[in-house]
């Protein structure tokens, strides 16, 4: 994996990606490539299609057209190298499972179909849980964890996959400041190990501090590139459209002069 990281092959690239739920397109001719490694943010207003982009990349929603490559290959060839952290609200936290049970799901691919998880895999799951600082909660039912702890359980499950490309959908949603710091440091560590981490992020104020690269998304890829180049007030204004309150926030975040706000 260190060899691929040193090659200029993007960790993730999409071309002409169009996705529609029923008749309404949610992503329209999106073309985008990440760097081979590093922390990448996907930023855009609610309903911009950020989650849909991740799901389309992972084959969870059908594409109308377009092509997705991961490390230059189709998904099926590199499934083992891809990790996913879904939106927290996507599962039922009342499910009778412990934190360790959930993290252990990240080891299922190592065990394979129909075989029980071995001792080694369970140990790896415990280690992943320790990495996010939840060792003491291993046997706690997941519904009895706080929102931030649940988010960290998901993170630990993703870590347990030992992937090279991670796709994370709003891992900071509903977490407190301390948890956010802890998650960021884990992500940083992954990036330092040469992995690519793509994160849907909704907080414009922190995005430039946490991430190296950004994709501004709203139905289309509005702008993409290194944070300093792409995260400009003009681009934010375009991504956030005529939504003024968000626009102000965006402009303040980019700490520049207000850009030309079309149709404001």
């Amino acid at each position: 994996m260190s060899t691929t990281a040193s090659l200029p092959v993007p960790a993730l690239s999409v071309r002409h990606l169009t996705v529609a739920y029923r008749d309404a397109p949610v992503l329209w001719e999106v073309g985008w490539a990440t760097p081979p490694s590093g922390l990448v943010a996907i930023v855009g207003p609610n309903g911009a299609g950020k989650s849909t982009l991740i799901k389309a990349v992972l084959g969870l929603v059908p594409k109308l057209s377009g092509e997705v490559r991961i490390f230059g290959e189709p998904l099926a060839a590199v499934r083992r190298r891809v990790g996913y952290l879904p939106q927290r609200a996507s599962v039922d936290w009342d499910f009778p499972a412990t934190a360790l049970d959930v993290v252990a799901m990240g080891r299922y691919p190592r065990a394979g179909w129909l075989r029980p998880l071995g001792r080694k895999e369970k140990g790896a799951a415990r280690a992943a849980l320790a990495e996010v600082g939840l060792s003491d909660f291993a046997d706690r039912q997941i519904g009895q964890l706080s929102g931030g702890q649940q988010q960290r359980v998901f993170l630990a499950r993703a870590l347990a996959l030992e992937a090279d490309l991670y796709l994370m959908d709003e891992p900071f949603a509903g977490v407190d400041a301390a948890t956010e710091k802890a998650i960021v440091s884990v992500l940083r560590r992954l990036a330092d190990q040469g992995k690519a981490v793509v994160v849907v992020h909704h907080d414009l104020a922190t995005a430039p501090h946490y991430f190296d690269h950004v994709l501004l998304l709203n139905l289309r890829a509005i702008a993409a590139g290194p944070m300093a180049e792409a995260f400009t007030p003009e681009n934010l204004a375009r991504a956030y459209g005529g939504r003024l309150s968000l626009l102000d926030q965006a402009v303040a975040a980019a700490a520049g002069a207000p850009g030309a706000a079309p149709r404001a």
Binding site: K55, L60, S90, P109, W113, L114, L161
Partner: peptide, 22 residues
């Protein structure tokens, strides 16, 4: 018993299961 972990994964988080090849 045979499908113990597969059934659990499919019940708890089917999307994650799809992604990791289950």
């Amino acid at each position: 018993l045979l499908f113990w972990k597969e059934l659990r994964l499919a019940a708890f988080d089917p999307a994650f299961g799809t992604v990791i090849g289950f």
